[in-house]
């Protein structure tokens, strides 16, 4: 069932990682990604891996849900690996057959590419697994606040994102229900050629859109009834504040980045 998709799902908890300020986690993720793209050697990748595993363990995130989240990305990862394997022409020639040439450089690049994508995906998973969507949008709004001076509608963007995230599970549930209902009327989504299958989606998509618009309408009315009028003068129940733990986390994040840069510099 659609419900079993764990991509980007929040696992409530009370671990150190969960308690960090969402802004800290977001910024550290950015540091982590920068470090990931600067990493060039086995040693620096090993360092990144150690960091990732440590955070996963600290956050009590089961490794099983990590691997399950990776499943939908498998094709993309394989595609990248194959592409890099065949199109990198450096190092020794390892294998030759008709138009296929595989070089040692290709193997190395493919391996690093796959590792990089895996680390990237797992890193972002860690953020969404340990941070509720509301905390995340809150953090984003606060971090982007300076852009308000440039007339960027920061609050509105954050609100839109928050609403979108909030309605993903609702819409998935709704889709499940509509699929079941049309199946009960004998709809068949699994057989036939591509065109037939695309046509079979109409009985799902039309009701889904109708209900999404209805929900949007109802939500807008409900928000107006509670006097929502944008972000000006709005106060918060939970005000984000950096604690000692956050500064420590920043230090670790910066240390990671620094280590990777140093390793790159010395070509290790």
């Amino acid at each position: 069932m659609l419900k079993d998709i764990t991509l980007g799902q929040f696992f409530p908890g009370k671990t150190v990682i969960h308690r960090l300020d969402p802004r800290t986690k977001l910024l550290i993720l950015i540091l982590y990604i920068v470090a990931l793209f600067l990493a060039k050697s086995y040693l620096s990748y090993a360092l990144m891996l150690v960091f990732l595993v440590t955070v996963t363990l600290l956050g009590h995130i089961p490794f099983k849900s990590m691997t399950r989240g990776l499943k939908p990305m498998l094709i993309f990862i394989l595609f990248t690996a194959v592409l890099n394997l065949f199109y990198t022409k450096s190092g020794r020639l390892l294998f030759e057959w008709k138009f296929i040439h595989i070089y040692s450089g290709g193997v190395r690049t493919a391996f690093f590419m796959v590792l990089r994508i895996l680390l990237l995906i797992c890193g972002t998973f860690l953020l969404t697994y340990t941070t509720s969507p509301i905390a995340l949008t809150d953090a984003l709004e606060r971090l982007l606040n300076p852009l308000k001076k440039l007339h960027v509608p920061v609050h509105e963007l954050a609100m839109m994102m928050c609403i979108a995230l909030r309605f993903i599970p609702t819409l998935i549930e709704e889709t499940d229900k509509i699929i079941s209902a049309q199946k009960a009327r004998g709809a068949d989504f699994e057989t036939g050629n591509l065109l037939r299958r695309a046509k079979a989606l109409v009985p799902i998509l039309v009701p889904l859109f109708v209900s999404a618009f209805r929900r949007a309408d109802e939500l807008a009315t409900a928000m107006e009834c509670r006097c929502y009028h944008g972000g000006d003068g709005r106060t918060r129940l939970k005000v984000l504040r950096y604690a000692k733990l956050d500064y420590l986390a920043f230090l670790i994040g910066l240390a990671l980045l620094a280590a990777v840069i140093v390793l790159r510099h010395f070509g290790l």
């Binding site: 509509i178 209902a181 004998g186 709809a187 068949d188 009985p203 039309v206």
Partner: peptide, 24 residues
């Protein structure tokens, strides 16, 4: 199902009612 009116999708009522038997 509950609230079955949320599954209607065709242009006319006739077509919507015919969806089930047509699938048969």
């Amino acid at each position: 199902f509950q609230y079955p009116e949320y599954q209607l999708f065709e242009e006319t009522c006739w077509k919507d009612i015919a969806f089930g038997p047509r699938n048969q």
